[in-house]
């Protein structure tokens, strides 16, 4: 796959605070790249630097193989942006807003009309074309925000947390829409701090923290990078401390946490972890009330790599 965005060692400072600390990122054509990290980790700053909206102190940024500058109008023509905040004209109707932004890229009136109709269809705002944004609900506003960013059918779309403060129904609608956009050959860079979204949507993920790219890869690749490959939660009717301490001897166990009645047993890469635990239970005549296995999540990846929860 062709690399269409290359960010190399970018440093961005806001006075004393470092927002991007030798940040690196690559985006390949046709993928949905998730930029995952906690609030304030530098996701939006990274996007703004890539789009040359923000100046940066050090590093290089190339988009479509060319150095990105504020005057790179030919590159901007191929890019769509869905900003974090709803960014539309309050006194233009839904249709007028979409048509205005489409017109900044598409000169032909007939093509523009078709694109606007398709964008309205895409975000399902047909019944609201004559509404002003202030009359729309939060979810519908978000859809309008998306329509304005994708109406010109860009090759590369940056979406900056488009589902923040959106109800579950609208969120699912937006995520499905992003998949469809990607299916229509758009490359998507998607920032989020929602693990589930990144896991469900993105073909590749860059995890960010404190302005740094911690690690990147597919969900499976990221999970394979950490020591914990499986967690088994078990709750016993009763267990003596001496027996509990013996659980550490089960093959591949790396750590055991006790949370009330629940034992959370962490295993490193290995097979038959569950059957090994069941053998231990039988051997010691233990009775359990619940027992289930959890595969590692991106939060576990983040926790192991940064020492803190993504939701902290």
């Amino acid at each position: 796959m062709r690399m269409i965005v290359k960010v190399k060692n970018v440093v961005k400072r806001y006075s004393e605070k470092i927002a991007l600390d030798h940040f690196n990122m690559e985006v390949y054509e046709g993928e949905i790249l998730g930029l995952l990290g906690p609030n304030g980790c530098g996701k939006t700053t990274a996007i703004n630097c890539i789009l040359s909206l923000l100046s940066f102190d050090k590093g290089e940024i190339e988009v479509f193989g060319k150095k990105m500058t504020p005057n790179s109008y030919d590159i901007k023509r191929q890019i769509g942006l869905v900003p974090q905040e709803v960014s539309v004209f309050e006194n233009l109707t839904v249709r007028e807003n979409i048509d205005y932004f489409c017109g900044l890229y598409v000169d032909d009136k007939n093509v523009r009309k078709r694109y606007v109709d398709e964008a309205i269809e895409f975000v399902d705002l047909k019944d609201y074309v004559k509404f002003y944004p202030k009359k729309l609900s939060g979810g519908l506003k978000r859809r309008l925000n998306i329509a304005c960013g994708i109406v010109h059918k860009p090759k590369l779309i940056f979406m900056d947390e488009p589902t923040v403060a959106v109800d579950a129904q609208s969120r699912n609608f937006i995520l499905e829409g992003i998949k469809r956009l990607n299916g229509e050959s758009s490359t998507v860079v998607y920032t989020t701090h929602y693990l589930e979204e990144a896991e469900m949507l993105c073909s590749r993920i860059v995890i960010m923290d404190n302005g740094k790219d911690i690690v990147s890869g597919t969900t499976e690749e990221l999970k394979a990078m950490i020591t914990t490959s499986e967690k088994i939660v078990v709750s016993f009717v009763s267990i003596e401390d001496s027996v509990a301490s013996l659980m550490k001897g089960i093959p591949h166990v790396i750590d055991i946490e006790r949370n009330g009645e629940d034992f959370i047993i962490k295993f490193e890469n290995g097979i038959n972890n569950l059957s090994n635990l069941l053998s231990f239970i039988t051997e010691h005549n233990l009775t359990y009330t619940k027992l289930y296995s959890k595969l590692p999540t991106l939060n576990d990846v983040f926790l192991e790599l940064t020492g803190k929860e993504l939701r902290d």
Binding site: L53, K76, L81, V86, V88, F158
Partner: peptide
């Protein structure tokens, strides 16, 4: 202006001068 309004961010990302 991108530093003054949300719509400024969007406009500055477009090819509009």
């Amino acid at each position: 202006q991108a530093n003054l309004s949300n719509i400024g961010i969007r406009i500055n990302a477009t090819p509009l001068r």
